[in-house]
């Protein structure tokens, strides 16, 4: 058959290949230019908008460029060594980022799973509630920040006013002004804004679990907790992997919410890595230093993501 020229057998499956076997005896490989053109647009976009800036950031991280001047000096690894050994703000930003990410990760994963289990059945009410929970996801984060900043305001904000009105004045806090709780106040807004998104992923994952397994468990007399532990959670592992990885990356990269609500203050209590590198690049005019921060930031996210994938992959169940 003529079309056999363009296919190879891999693991028993017939797949398209860029290489063509001309004869059975002599397998001469030829480059198929048509397939190259298929890849080209994506390759160009990836190179211009991702690979290029990444390489540029790596290069700039070894310079003292201020972001404006036409010239700069090479400074070797000094940006990295200064940042890791003599920059308490960078260390504080990293610590804040971990607190923020961990807070969001735990609450967002647990609660989105909880709500997903409550709303898994496709009833009209459940579909309505899913839409309601998803709504904050589609609101621009700057709008979310604006609304929550007013809600958190200690004098005119609705949260403290409600707490005072119901006699819980002692619980009224300086939500964004207290250095000890400001980062958690921001984490709560991030959690509020994105839980609906994760809920939808979990609902999709729950729908993919075969009903027969639950029926078998019921016949065997398994309790709800046993059913969850032995069926739901293991079979939800792929969805959980996506939720955990996505939440982690999203929380590490949270920027607009923090900039709009606190700008990293008070006293750097809410400065996270993304705002740190923004301040270094565009406020302090230390573009080289900020590039070094960006490289470290990228490495941290890559390590955390790989670890998470490996950890959660080990829980995968095939059926």
């Amino acid at each position: 058959m003529q079309s056999n020229n363009n296919v190879e057998r891999v693991g028993g499956a017939r797949v398209a290949s860029p290489y063509v076997a001309s004869t059975a005896k002599k397998r001469k490989k030829k480059w198929n230019w048509a397939l190259f053109f298929f890849v080209l647009p994506g390759f160009i976009i990836y190179s211009v908008f991702f690979a290029g800036p990444t390489v540029a950031a790596l290069f700039l991280s070894f310079t003292d460029w201020n972001g404006i001047a036409p010239t700069f000096n090479y400074v070797g690894f000094s940006n990295y060594t200064n940042m890791l050994t003599d920059d308490p703000i960078f260390v504080q930003s990293l610590g804040n980022n971990l607190k923020f990410t961990l807070g969001v990760l735990i609450f967002q994963t647990v609660l989105s799973l909880f709500f997903a289990m409550l709303l898994v059945k496709n009833t009209k009410a459940n579909i309505f509630y899913r839409a309601v929970y998803f709504f904050p996801t589609i609101v621009a984060s700057v709008s979310v920040a604006f609304v929550w900043t007013f809600m958190y305001d200690p004098n005119i904000g609705v949260i403290n006013n409600i707490l005072s009105a119901v006699g819980l004045e002692s619980l009224a806090k300086s939500w964004l002004g207290d250095r000890n709780i400001a980062i958690y106040s921001l984490a709560f807004v991030q959690f509020w804004a994105h839980t609906g998104q994760m809920l939808i992923i979990f609902v999709a994952g729950l729908h993919a679990i075969p009903k027969e397994l639950y029926e078998a468990a019921e016949i065997e007399g398994a309790s709800k907790w046993q059913t969850f532990k032995s069926i739901t959670w293991p079979l939800l592992a792929p969805s959980a992997t996506i939720v955990v990885a996505y939440t982690t990356i999203q929380s590490f990269k949270a920027f607009d919410l923090v900039i709009a609500m606190t700008g990293g203050g008070p006293s750097y209590a809410t400065e996270i890595l993304s705002t740190f590198l923004y301040h270094e690049a565009f406020i302090n005019f230390r573009f080289g230093y900020a590039s070094a921060a960006a490289v470290i930031f990228m490495i941290i996210i890559a390590i955390v993501t790989v670890l998470q994938f490996r950890l959660l992959k080990s829980n995968d169940v095939k059926f």
Partner: peptide, 16 residues
Amino acid sequence: FQKDPLGTKKEGAAAL
């Protein structure tokens, strides 16, 4: 200063 000066934003202070 008013209650919780660090938690009050520019818009909130101006409104008061």
